[in-house]
Each structure stands twice: as C-alpha cells, then as structure tokens.
Design a protein around this nucleic acid. Structure first.
Length: 237
DNA sequence: AATGGCCCCAACCGCCGTTTC
DNA sequence: AGAAACGGCGGTTGGGGCCAT
C-alpha cells in the first residue's frame, strides 16, 4: 500500500469541479474499473468514492425529489417482506438508490409505526414467503389496479414469483429528474462530450496499437499514457 | 438574534462475494 | 488454483438546515 497516495485522497463533500470531471470520465470510460477511472481522471478520490458519487447522485437516470405516496407505500411493503434488503427494494423503484431508500425508511419508519396501523403486516406474520407474496398480490394489486398498470406494478409481481427482469414499479416517463441548474449542467456536459468525441484525435489503426503502453477506450486508442493524460486535460480545460 | 435539538441525507466504512490475472 | 483487485451491500456517521424556544 502506498501510504502517501492514501494520505492525499480527498474525503467529504464533492466539489462541483470534481463532479464535472467525474461525469466526463465516466462518459469516456464507462461505469466500471472505478479505481482506474479515479486515477486516470486525476481526481484525488478513491474509486469507491467515485462509484458512490455516480451511483447515488450524478447518474442522470436518478429520480430526484420527494418520494411519492406510491413509492412510500411500496418501500414499506417491500421492507415488510424482505427486511433491510435496500438494493433489492431499490431495483423495484427505478431512479431511486438503495441509499436513498435506506435513509427514507430510517427517517419515516418510526413515524410510520406510530401513525399507521400495520394490520396487514401483522396479519401476514407467520405465513410462508409464498403466502406473503400471494397476499401481497391479491390485496395490493387489486386495490391499486388503475395506477398499478401505468407504473408497471403487475410486472413486478411476476418477477417476485419467479424471474427477475429489469422492469420496475414506477414508470420512467413520470420522472421529474434534471430539475436543478446543476443537474441540467451535468446533462449538458454529457451531450457535449458525445459531440466532442467526433472531434478528438483518434488513432484509427487499432491493429498497429499492440504495444502494452497503448490505452484503449472504446474505439479510442492512445499510444502513450502521456497522450491520454494530455487528452484528459484538454477535456477538463 | 441566539441557541439547542432534531431531521435529513450525502458520504464513509467494513465486510463479503465476484471477477480478473 | 489462488491471490489480488474490484464491485456491491448494509450499517453508520457527520454536517447542514430547519424549527421551536
């Protein structure tokens, strides 16, 4: 372990400049190899920190704003079924992160327990998982049939009874993300980078790029690490 | 206006499973 | 096959903002 490197890693709240840089490099390199991305971007952040920032805040597919009544209901019902399986619950609510749901639940669970009666949950206790799912399907789907369809609720139930798919409970078309000026800027950067790619200095001769010093980013090839770093700086400036 | 308490949420930490070399 | 790196997950923390006093 390189102690000096660890020592210079930044922690705490992200700066706007850091966000900008992170978004640019994720657009270039994709959502993977976070440690490499953190290093090559020049961000004094751990790969893990970069990943978290993207997953929980910068990702444009995230839904912003307060939880709807529908989401609230779903969170509490799924938590009653699965417990603290936040990521599993989050997969049923596209645009919401496990962190967000976890925070929301922690904040509201106490109030909820006091304010609401949990007749349904209590009634379900002692049942098997299949019975729980059956009850869940019978009671909730029927009660919310009108809105359920527009939110893809039926598909969720079919998932729970067997196959996992990528569909979720809430329809993306109803999202209100990209509301703040900051979020709009992030969206703009992504668009700009897509356009900029056609103007970048790209080596087309992939076959000749077999040196181990070459860096391959999608269809982009850099012959030296230095070339890539210079290119990176040009994106930043 | 000052302050103390509470709420909210972004970010970190540690662990563990998976992937890569 | 095994070690190292990576990524995902759930728990926890710290700080900013709001509100009542």
């Amino acid at each position: 372990m390189d102690f000096k490197k660890e020592e210079t890693l930044r922690k705490g709240p992200w700066l706007e400049e850091e966000d900008e840089r992170l978004v640019k490099f994720i657009t270039l390199l994709g959502e993977r190899r976070w440690d490499s991305l953190a290093k090559v971007s020049g961000l004094k952040r751990s790969g893990k920190s970069c990943r978290l920032r993207w997953m929980n805040y910068l990702n444009p597919s995230l839904k912003r704003g307060p939880m709807s009544q529908e989401e609230d209901r779903i969170i509490f019902q799924l938590h009653a079924l699965w417990g603290n399986k936040w990521s599993k619950i989050a997969r049923r609510l596209p645009g919401r992160t496990d962190n967000e749901i976890k925070n929301y639940w922690r904040t509201h669970s106490r109030k909820k327990e006091e304010a609401q009666n949990y007749d349904k949950v209590i009634e379900w206790r002692g049942n098997t998982g299949e019975e729980l799912l059956h009850n869940y399907k019978e009671t909730e789907i029927t009660r919310t049939r009108t809105t359920s369809h527009e939110h893809g609720f039926v598909e969720v139930v079919s998932m729970e009874s067997g196959k996992e798919t990528n569909c979720g409970i809430c329809g993306r078309e109803s999202y209100g993300f990209m509301n703040s000026p900051y979020e709009n800027r992030i969206s703009d950067w992504i668009s700009e980078i897509s356009t900029d790619q056609s103007e970048a200095n790209i080596s087309e001769d992939h076959s000749s790029s077999s040196s181990e010093n070459n860096i391959n980013i999608g269809t982009w090839w850099f012959q030296e690490t230095r070339d890539f770093e210079e290119f990176s700086c040009s994106l930043w400036s």
